[in-house]
Computed example of a mutant assay.
Amino acid sequence: MNMFASTLYRIMEWIMRFAYLQLLWIGFTLFGFVILGFYPSTAAMFAVVRDWIRGETDIRIFEAYWNYFKTDFLKTNLLGILITSIILLIGIDIYYIQLDKSEQLAWTYIPLFAFMALFLLYLVYLFPVFAHYDLKLSGVLRNTLFIMLISPIHNLLLVISLGALFLIMKSVPALAFIFGGSAYAFITMWLSLHAFNLVERKKRNA
């Protein structure tokens, strides 16, 4: 009975941690009026999750989150400008392709959607790389691309895991509001850390 109670307590403790981290993510995003808050808030969430995965489960969540948020506020928003600009360019391309009903632009759907798929996968790795490595923005961008290209198995695992998470959240929308962001960050960070460790082992053995 004591073992059952202890296990139940640990489960509830982690549920509360994920829910609290989700609340911080939403709150700090709104604190930055969404535009200035989303990227630093997301980076801070990934940094806290990274600490948990590396065994630092006793950290003061709010203090750690706030420290990551304010430390990387400018850097993450500069990164956000780049990401948002690319998303806008993709949106403009799609708009003009749909606007032109001729077959002249129809062939551009395939390379555009291929680029979109690769860009989405790139974004999946981007925040884990940002949280894990102490690099300048140019280094973050290069490392993200490098890790994505040499990690096909992890890419597949990420697609399957995040696809399953999406289906679960779609089936129970309330879970998306309570755990969506933090669960996404945990799955992505956990698999990304495995990819990072593999890359570092390859470098040492090279």
Rank of each mutant, 00 (worst) to 15 (best):
F113V: 15
P40F: 05
N155F: 04
I11V: 15
I147A: 00
A19V: 14
L36K: 00
I61G: 00
A164Y: 12
A117V: 12
T84G: 02
R17I: 09
R204H: 09
T7D: 10
D58Y: 06
R54P: 00
L120Y: 08
F179K: 04
L145C: 05
L118I: 12
K75Y: 08
F127H: 03
F33T: 09
A176I: 07
S151P: 04
P173I: 14
I83F: 07
A5M: 10
A185Y: 00
G27D: 09
R10M: 09
M45K: 01
L193M: 15
F166Q: 08
V172C: 03
F166K: 07
L156S: 05
A47I: 06
L135W: 06
I87G: 05
F113W: 08
M45R: 01
V172Q: 04
S85E: 08
A131Q: 07
N67C: 01
E13F: 09
E103A: 12
T84W: 02
W66T: 01
F115L: 13
L30A: 14
F127Q: 03
D58V: 13
D72G: 07
N77P: 05
L79N: 07
F73W: 09
R17N: 10
I90G: 00
P152D: 10
I15S: 12
F119C: 05
D72C: 07
M148W: 05
L105V: 13
D58T: 15
L105C: 00
V199F: 11
A176R: 03
P40R: 02
F166M: 13
I168H: 02
R54K: 13
T188Y: 00
I153W: 08
A174N: 06
R142C: 00
R201I: 13
L193K: 00
T29C: 10
F4H: 03
F4R: 09
E103S: 11
L123T: 02
S161K: 00
Y109E: 10
L118C: 12
K202T: 07
N2K: 14
Q98N: 12
A164C: 12
L36G: 08
L157E: 05
K203Y: 04
L165P: 03
R17W: 09
D134Y: 10
F38W: 11
K101C: 00
K136F: 06
I61L: 10
T42K: 06
G181W: 06
I110V: 14
G80D: 05
L137S: 09
A174Y: 11
M45W: 04
I87N: 12
I94W: 06
I26K: 03
P40S: 08
F127Y: 13
I178H: 05
A114M: 13
M16T: 09
M116D: 01
F28I: 10
